[in-house]
Structure formats: C-alpha cells, structure tokens
Design a protein around this nucleic acid. Sequence first.
DNA 1: GTTCCCTGA
Length: 790
Amino acid sequence: MSWDPGPDSLDFELNPYGHSLVFSSRYYQLLGKRKDLPIYACKEQFMTAIEKSQVVLVEGKVGSGKTTQVPQWCVEFVHGHRYQSGIVGCAEPADLVTCAVAQRVTDEMDLVFGEEVGYCTALEDFSTQETILRFVNDSVLLREIAVDPLLERYGVIILDEVQRRTVATDLTMALLGDILSQRSDMRVVVVTTSIQAGNFQSYIGACEVVKVPGAGDSTTEIQHTQDVVHDGKCVEEAVKRVTDIHANDGDNGDILVFLADEKEVQEACRRLRDVDDLPAPLQIIPVFPSLSHNQLHGLYDVPDEEQEPTGQGLEEHPGNEDTPEEVVENDGNETEDSAHDGDEEDDDTISGERPRKVIVATDIADSCLVVDTVGFVVDSGRVRQEVFNARVRATQDLVSLISRLSADQRADLASLRPGKPGKCFRLYPEDFTEDLAAFPNPEIHRVNLTPWILLLKRLGVEDLLKFDFPDPPATEFLSGAMNQLKHLDAVDETGCLTDLGAIMSEFPVDPQLARTIIASCEYGCCEDILTIAALLTVPPVFLRPPEAAQAADDVRRRKFARAGSDHLALINVYHAFRQNYQDELWCSSNYLNFDALRMTDDIRQYFGAILERLELGPCEDSEPKTEEERVKNIKRALAEGYFMQVAHDLDGTGNYFIVKETQVVQLHPTTCLDSNPGWVLYHEFVLSERNYITTLTEIEPQWLFDIAPKYFDPTNLPQGEARRRFHSILVKSELAVPGKPAREWAGPGVAQPAAPRNFHSQAGRGPVQHGQMRERKEEDDDDSKLCVVS
DNA sequence: GTTCCCTGA
C-alpha cells in the first residue's frame, strides 16, 4: 500500500491517505462547507457506534450530508485498524449516482479519482488495488458476492439509499446478515432517509442507530392544486408553473421540476426552451437515469479554470469544483470525468450573474442528487415504473403516484439554501396526500424475479421460502420464477441449481438469453447469437422521433428488415454499422441509436469471453453450410431459450395466442415481419393500450417439441386451440406412438425432457474466479478462434 | 398502427 498510516483525524494537516502529504487549500475550502452539514455534528456518535457495533443504521434527511460524509468516516475507521479487515465499499442504487458521489468524495478527501477513491459500475471499473474507498453500483456488489462469498476485500460495507428498496439492495442486505455472522471483524452501515421505509431496525436487530437532526432553519411552504391534473396535462401545467415562478418570485432560487419519465422531461425541456417572453434567460437542465454522468451539464456550477481566487495546489483536481453556495450530498459534481479523458466542459460559469436554472428530473433526483441552490420545487407527484404482471408474465410500464416519503423529500429539496425558505408546488390536491402510500413499494414486489432467483441459487440459497428477505415477495412471484428456471433446466425438480444453471448464472443477462447463448455453441452460430444478445442488451437501437416516424419506419423496413425475423434485422443493423465505420452521422440519418450501437462491441466481446472462459465454443461440425441453414440454426438457438415465449396465429387476422397463458396478443407494429406467420417467438410481452409482443422471429412449432417436450406436451396445455394444434403436429411427427391415446403421450419414455446436453464444459470448472470479471481486456485480443461472420 | 429500460458488462 502506498499510503502511510497517519493520524486518525482528517483535521490534521497531513493527508493520511494520499501520496502528497500536505492538504491543498481546496481541501480546507471544502472542509469548511462539510462542517456546516447537519450530519457533521454526528461524527463522534458515529465513530463510537462503528467501533462498538457490527451494524450501524444512519437516518438523515435529504441534504444532510450522509452520502458524502459517512464513507469518509468509514475510511477513517478502517485506516485506524490498518486495513486489517479490508477496505470500504459503498453501494449506490444507480450508475449516475455511483460515479458522481465518488468524484465528489475524492475531491473532499483531496485524493486522486480512480486511485485511492474509485468506483465500479456495470460498464466501468475505475478503481485499483490501491483503492481504499470503492463506490459500486448495488447490483455489481451483489454479483461480487458470487466470486467473493464473504466479501473479504471489504472491512466495511455501506448500503446507501436503502429506502429506495431496489432488488439488489434488499438482497444484499439479506445476504450480509449471513456474512456478518462469519466475519466478526466486518462492519455494515445502512444509510436511509427513513428508518420506517422498511422496518429496517427490527429487520436488522441489534444495531447502533445514528439519527441526524434536521437542518431545521428553514422549511418549505407547500401549495397544492385545487383539482387533479391529469397525466396528459402534467407537462403543460409544470411548464406554466415554472414560468409563473420565474416571472413573479424574485428571490431567484433555482427551480426543480419532477415529472414521471424521460419522455415528459424531454418534452418539458423542449417547451421551456420555446417560451419566448421570459423576463430573464433560464438554463434548462434535464436529468434522468440513462444520462451518462458526463451529461449532467450544468447541474452543479462548474467554474472549471475559474476557480475561487484561493487556488493554489489545485492541479490534482482539474475541473472539479463547485461554488461555495453549493453543498452536494450525492452529487455529481458536474463533470465529466476530467480524470477519465480530460474532456473539457465549456459550460456557462457563475462569474457574475448566472442564469436561473430549471432542473427537470425524474425520481432519480428525489434523494440521490442534491442541488442546494434550489428554492422552488414543482412536483407532479408521479413516477413511471415497471410493473411485472406475474399472472400473464408480462411487464407493464405504469405511471403511478409517488410515496408520501418521496413527496416529502421532494419538498425538502426546496429549502436547502442556508437560511432561506423554499416553496413546493404540488400538481395534485391536498387530500391526495392521504391516499399516497407511506413508503416506496419495494422493487422486489413488482419485477420479474427469474434472473434474481437464479443469482440467489448461484449464491447457495437453498430454500427460498426460508430466505430472509426484508420484504418477502408474493409466493406467486417466487414460484413463477422457479418454474421458469425449471423449464430452462437451470434448476432441477428439487429446486437445486444444475450444472447448466451454474453456467447460465455466469452471464449477466436474463436466463432465457443465457440459455440461447449457450445453445448457440451447439448450433454453430455463436457469432450471430452473440451479436443478437448484445443488441438485445443495449438500449433499443431503432429510433423513432415523432417528427420523422414514417421515415424511420421506412428506413427500418427497407434497409434492415430480414424475412421472418426481427432478431436477424438486428444482425443486419450491426453489420451495416460496422461497414459504415461506426459513423454517428450515418446512424442519425438511418434513425439508429449511435450510443447503443457503440456499446454493442464491448458487450458482445464480454459475452464471448465468458464462453471462452467456460470453455464453451462453437462445435466445428455444427457449422452451417448454407445461408438457409445458418438462419435456421439462429432461430433454433433462440427457441432454445425462448420456447416459453411463443405465440400462434389464431385465425389469420393478426390475433395471436400465447401458448400457455391463453392470452390474445398482437404483433407490435414496429416489427419487420411483413406477414402473419403461423408461429412466432417473441422477446417481450408488453401490456399497454393493447397487448403487444415485440421483437419477433418466425419459428416452426416442431422445434418446440425437440427443445422442451414436456413443456409442450398437449396434456399439459390448457384446453383450446394451441392444444389442438400441438396435438395434430404431434400426430404427424415421429414422436407419436401409434395406438396410444393422446393423453398418455407424456408418459414415461415417450416425451422425456431432452437429455442433458454436453456443454463442452469441464466438470468442476464452474464459478468464476475472483478477478476474472475484470480481466477481459486482455482476453479479448485473442478471440480469433471465434469465427467472423461475413 | 406504437412500450420503455432500475440493473447485469
């Protein structure tokens, strides 16, 4: 380790953690601000608590400084113990926040971003062996448990924003209980805006509790509308409210607007830019989760070169800063990873009068991103969330009302300016607040659990009913997930992980897709399936801007459509993108998402590296000889994973039946299919105005018997058309045993599950070894063994 | 004749 053990107090003049031993003036400048944070008064209490207790629960309102200060205190703790138990890991619920907080904390500690303090998200690992404080995305931490079951590199784990109740945080909290019992030297710090949001105290049991007193010197005045504002009117109403505030409320605090989703945010920003009779210019800043952290332009004031005139010794922090009036809790300080690539931001600066900011955000800004120059909040009270319908196994994106906790947090954000009161305008009537749920609904209650359950199985959880979930999901969710995993042969009849399931769990994708990737080795179409898998994993590649919808449709169908398969169309897009030198302009003129396509290669190579590591690869003898055979093999490989997601044409009118669910669905209009094939496999079933299945490939029903004979045994199917059809297919196929009545076809010896396949994997070579996950860069260079597709 | 993606890398 490259730092010297030093004094335990950060107030000492030498930096105990960094290479350069003397603190910069910037450090003191930030320290002054840190001392004003409400949480600063709790430091001693916290340090005593963590010495004494394995688990510390910290509760504090938004803006109290929890997210930036607690990790630093934990570093002091592990430093004091000479890192004997490990370093500090801090789990955050979103990538945007993970990186932003890491940058801010690096700055406050006067260290080097990516060295002593680093971060790790799905896409990036910006940390080293020397890192002592590592911010990680919560699902990345959960996956780390698979390779490091006792999380031995960490002496302290911080779970931040626990009240958001992401699946990954919930599961990690449950698993940590077990880890702590085996590691008496480890500490866990649970950080939340509200202990009540999950009965955390009774869930955790014995622990020390640190409650941060409220800031208290200013409160938010809240106004409600008289009437309900309907979904379609929210954007308009919010824009009107912003222009009103700007025209009439002179104290010039910034304005923070909460809308339901990215689409509304973009729409509101567009309208605000179009308003032409403003008394003074506004700086419009959209914020939503899929922004990359270097797109948070202007959220925090960034003087860049123009530092406060104090600046000596700031070389280590090019571009990192913020103004004195800003405290950032989780904040992203602005910018772009200066440390990554030195990208310069030429934002407006706050020299003199800066324009008033209007930050238009989704719920990601409820608690994770704090801007303390805000004086006005406009809250639509809504959020768009994915809701999984376990009965029909379909996702639905619904706009729902936020919880009272979120509503209160949003209001609190209006009064973080020292000594100045704030105002919150809620776009809903006052009596609505009584109908709001008190706390956010845990995500584990509303998403498809199949991938998460596979991960738990991989982590050695035997009995899910006995697993200590903070809030157990409905048994319907658990059994639905287990059934899917059984059909996929990922777990056996007794619920134990199979060898195939262990292999599937290596892939950071849905189990169906993992199964398809593995199957592609047998069908000699790895390269094509890896391309499809990568494209199904990145954000949608086809764009459809409202003003050019027709043109986008035309291009998609003319240039990329391929008979009978949207999946094959994706392959066409990928190759066309490469043939056109991965050109951004080419993408926009073809209505393709450049950012998504640019990510595809990395992900594709990563999946390929997993196959290699597992010693799974294309079988030479299964290489397709003809184009026709190649297409057929791709489709069959898809069917190996997605056989539970097939639908058949009911009557030639475009109404399709989902085989097992007796649901009638339509093919989504964006499909490239130009006719209505008899049988299709789909990637997703979305419930919206109508029931649609999307990303489709035509298949032959006979394949389904080969792949999953038991699943498609007619006697297991509901009464109806699908059953009749399978019956007749079966009669024609050689599987039919003459003279036996149909209902016995599923009997022993006739339609057994497919024999376990040889996955070319060496027995006993299962789990990933620690560290392999990040070694891919080297591996990738010699994957020449995988064939290249024309 | 029109869903949005919190996340895995």
